[in-house]
Design a protein around this nucleic acid. Structure first.
Lengths: 210, 210
DNA sequence: CATGCAATAGAACGTCTGTCCCACAGCGTA
DNA sequence: TACGCTGTGGGACAGACGTTCTATTGCATG
């Protein structure tokens, strides 16, 4: 039978893990209590004592933040084919890529062995119907051509309004022009001459942190 | 020219790193001073202030053990900030998690340092309005409680039809019951007693390979 | 019903911790 | 010499922190 105290102790373990990860140091009794909705420090101390007896945590007496979760034996994870990829900046419909030369972050992309990848943080909702939201990160393979229906990062090199700008769009080749189509009902496709267009890459992965 | 203060600050940085690793938490000013041969707390505080101005450390004011070495932006450091996570199976509205004990794949999740993560491949379109599609991978933090509006992996332990099944839903606490809400106009929310429900985790990242 | 135990809140207390202040020494410079 | 800056020690102090104690509630069980 799982008692209410066991449930509380599970929540305390989760709080220790969460707070340790987010702050870089173990939490105090008060921080745990606050996180759990205003529990008293004595209450937390009571459960920490039991958790220590159960061997679930290490607890250094009288030291501030002297708790840590006992390391469980976890099977060594196998190496995985993955590549870290620079996040080169942000992209939006009708906006240039910013800071293209100075990656400000990296994401690790699973299951790829390719070197020619880069990532962009998406601004705006122009691709919302393809389930790409504002703030998402799109990982792209660097390539200069695209197939119909690919989601691409396209640089428009000349033209009436969008010159010099990079956009995230669906790519469709038409007989004498290229249609770049946003995926948002309130936005219209744009048409460009093939020679005014440089494909920079194609989206292969979407990552969203919630 | 490298001043004596710079040397002392280097020793302090090394002490922070060493003591953090050996104890699992950042040291106090006194612990640093003792480790360096009995320096005074004011002395350590003086150098910590300079190190913070130099951007070498983060320093959370007035918090005990509120120091941590600033994560360098060098690419070599960044793999430390990602975790490989087992994909435990698939999940769908009204279907149990399959192969929960036998991870069949791993994904590498950027920007997390937490151990208690797992991942599931989503089947079905029940969360399509939250931009979670069929085939996406959701990375979840293992936790037994949830806040209103969280997207959770919920196991329904008893009830008329969904018994023993795990679903991916939005979580809402109501006065005497819990509402688990899909994000698909064609699907209705389900209501369960809190005691019939086990929260398994909360979605923190969504990954889609195209 | 009485007893006992688990779970919880609240407060008190002593120690730990970060910060601040003062003093002083060494060193380069106006 | 006098001044200013850096590096160092020592101490005071307020607030943070862990621990302990008391009290209460609810729920088993005899």
């Amino acid at each position: 039978m799982r008692s209410t105290g066991d449930r509380m102790r599970t929540r305390i373990l989760e709080a220790i893990s969460l707070l340790s990860d987010s702050t870089g140091r173990p939490p105090t009794n008060r921080e745990i209590g606050d996180h759990l909705g205003g529990k008293s420090t004595g209450h937390i101390d009571y459960h920490l004592r039991i958790l220590k007896e159960q061997g679930k945590i290490r607890h250094e007496s009288k030291k501030s933040r002297g708790i840590s979760i006992a390391t469980s034996l976890e099977p060594e994870m196998l190496p995985l084919r993955s590549r870290r990829v620079p996040v080169m900046g942000t992209i939006a419909a009708g906006r240039p890529i910013e800071a293209m030369l100075d990656p400000d972050d990296y994401v690790t992309v699973p299951g790829v062995t390719e070197d020619n990848l880069f990532a962009l943080r998406v601004r705006g909702k122009s691709m919302i119907e393809d389930l790409i939201d504002d703030g998402d990160i799109v990982v792209c393979r660097r390539q200069s051509t695209a197939d119909n229906g690919d989601t691409v990062v396209a640089l428009i090199t000349s033209g009436p309004s969008e010159a010099g700008e990079a956009t995230l769009k669906r790519f469709y080749k038409e007989p004498s022009r290229v249609r770049l189509e946003p995926r948002n009902l309130s936005m219209a496709p744009i048409f460009v001459n093939p020679e005014d267009l440089t494909i920079q890459g194609k989206v292969v992965t979407v990552i969203r942190e919630m």
